[in-house]
Write a protein that binds this DNA or RNA. Structure first.
Lengths: 140, 140
DNA sequence: TTGCATTAGATGCGTCTGCATGTATGGTTG
DNA sequence: CAACCATACATGCAGACGCATCTAATGCAA
């Protein structure tokens, strides 16, 4: 399929992004889920909170960091809270707002999942020296 | 949020992919949908069929090209067929198989949508000389 | 030919997503 | 202060996805 590559360099960049995104997110989703009971976005949220160094984050702030809509992030945080990986507290200064903070269990689960996460990324971003045009992941 | 960047170069690449994917797909989805009644994946399928130069494609072949599962692609093609943009015929040589071919209306819709598609991509892949770390698409 | 594993594609089901909207609080203006 | 608009998050809803499974057609072997 698709012998002729699209010649537009912007399109080539975009297809490269699509290919890498598909390859990585597919494997990440499966591996994180099976090995650590975490979705890809859930891992990403935990990681951002760990890296941020602060203890409290606003929902919208998290949403921006992981490229999710506010509504999707609200639900995602609800799932994480139900799993005991984060907790939500009302923001006293602005009672509309909510503070999200990662729990110890959340930090633990994140720490455990990091090796899996990095291994998948190394694999995806390693293979492919020239330009694969059409992804050929076949059996991974 | 997230002052400290993750130092791992593979993670940085991955986050760049995530940011570009989110920025582009979000805008593409909206613009293609509003202006041309096409989803991003639907456009992608039409484009691959046009570029491929052949007239007939197998479902799995299309799925691989656009990084969709076989089931998702089956439904996507069903949507396109209902919209009159492709048609399906049984493969006589192997009656399990199906041939998908783009219709004239499909070619027209694709051709009309190309400028929108390219404009969005140019915008997303243009902005950002150094490295934005956090995406800042804001109002597009 | 019969029997069984394989393959192509369709479909049931549960999950996640974005958009639109709802609810509550905050801030501003007259 | 009262009315009104803006902001922060939650939620109803419909759409699209992947996984597992189903159906039908193949093909290979006994």
């Amino acid at each position: 399929m698709l012998r002729r590559m699209n010649e537009d360099p912007v399109v080539q960049k975009w297809r490269d992004v699509l290919a890498k995104h598909a390859a990585a997110s597919c494997v990440l989703e499966r591996e994180l889920s099976e090995r650590h009971r975490l979705g890809m976005s859930e891992f990403e949220v935990l990681e951002r909170m760990v890296e941020g160094g602060r203890e409290k984050y606003r929902v919208q702030e998290v949403a921006d960091a992981v490229h999710l809509s506010q509504s999707a992030c609200s639900r995602l945080i609800a799932r994480l809270e139900k799993a005991g990986l984060v907790c939500r507290n009302m923001c006293e200064a602005d009672r509309r707002g909510v503070f999200v903070r990662i729990t110890d269990e959340g930090r633990t689960r994140h720490r455990e999942a990091v090796p899996t996460h990095r291994a998948v990324l190394r694999q995806v971003f390693a293979a492919e020296p020239a330009k694969p045009a059409e992804l050929r992941p076949a059996e991974v």
